[in-house]
Design a protein around this nucleic acid. Structure first.
Lengths: 197, 197
DNA sequence: CAACATTGCATAACATCGTTGTATTTTCGG
DNA sequence: CCGAAAATACAACGATGTTATGCAATGTTG
């Protein structure tokens, strides 16, 4: 139900209640239990929708002749998706608890799956010699961890000037690219190219 | 009230209710309103206690002749504190919402303040030439972002073999040290020294 | 077409939550 | 030792998720 998604994105997780949702959708609270199994399953459906959006966002980052720029573009896409679905993001990755809802292993697997495009792009960086040879998934996980930290602190309003999320994001991605083996100059150029997409 | 802290650490944020707390403390729900102002202020007190523990943990990392090892030890201390107070940590940094509780700017300032020891250690690394000259707070923020991401994903059970939190943590800290200017060999040695404290 | 079964939702009720008001008990200063 | 003040026990209110019951719409079948 897109009414639930609207409530969650506009008024936050606390507004996502059966009665608020029933009022917004013009029905009764029972609709939640017929269409879903309960509040938990509704939240789970929201989470899956969130992962679907994230995957969509990652997949539509096209592959170019510059795989390092592709990696940077994937990082930008990841952050953009989190900022546009901030409440959903915090539920997806274990932040907001939202009543008795708890992630299960299947949910988490959806999250890990979103890293596949990054792993592929990193593999291409290694094949072309821009990155040192190694495990692409390890590098992708490294990037995920760093960007997740940035995004959650940004959403929690912990990052203020002069160390804004924007500047830290650029620094973070850049050091990740260089730490994976790229040269300083080419990494900077690839980041600029990624930003302009 | 340490009963509240025990409830939160042992049964999670959802178990922290006025009635559960009253039953655990052997009193009535009114005790929450006399000693604190309400549920929100009780959570806020818990959060402040969490920041106090974090600061304590960071401060007791002694300064040695190897400032890079000190930085690594601070990272270890940060992660250890988060793992030992996992539920509290998620409340402190905007993860769990816990009813209507919301962080205010004063709370966040407590969190940022915990970075001071890191900034000092980084400054010493720069003075001794192990790190490139630069803004110590910028490097400290960089480290914070990366470690916060690692910890939150670890607490959310997102990190599984072969990319465990343990291995990613080592990789993350190592690349941070090297990215800040240290050599590969000396950084590895300093990390080993930090781990053995 | 009519009787039936099934499905979906509205209404009401229940347990639990944070919170508030009132009365009672406890505490403590003079 | 007494009176004022603080702390607490008890009950109640609104709101939450959930369940039970009943009704109406819908589809199915003879």
């Amino acid at each position: 139900m897109e009414a639930a998604a609207r409530l969650l994105t506009e008024e936050g997780p606390n507004a996502l209640s059966t009665r608020r949702l029933a009022a917004a959708a013009g029905t009764s609270t029972m609709a939640v239990y017929t269409h879903f199994g309960g509040m938990d399953d509704l939240v789970r459906a929201m989470v899956h929708e969130g992962f679907r959006r994230l995957n969509e966002r990652m997949i539509e980052v096209v592959q170019t002749a510059d795989p390092v720029a592709d990696v940077a573009a994937l990082g930008i896409a990841y952050r953009d998706n989190a900022l546009e679905n901030r409440h959903l993001y915090s539920v997806m990755f274990g932040g907001s608890t939202l009543g008795g809802f708890a992630l299960n292993e299947e949910d988490r697997q959806y999250g890990r799956y979103a890293l596949e495009p990054v792993a592929h792009a990193v593999a291409r960086c290694m094949e072309t010699g821009r990155f040192w040879p190694g495990d692409p998934r390890a590098v992708a996980n490294q990037m995920w961890v760093a960007l997740h930290g940035l995004v959650t602190l940004e959403l929690g309003d912990y990052l203020i000037a002069p160390y804004t999320a924007e500047s830290l994001f650029g620094w973070q991605v850049r050091s990740l690219l260089i730490g994976a083996g790229d040269d300083v100059e080419t990494a900077t150029a690839s980041m600029r190219a990624a930003k302009e997409r």
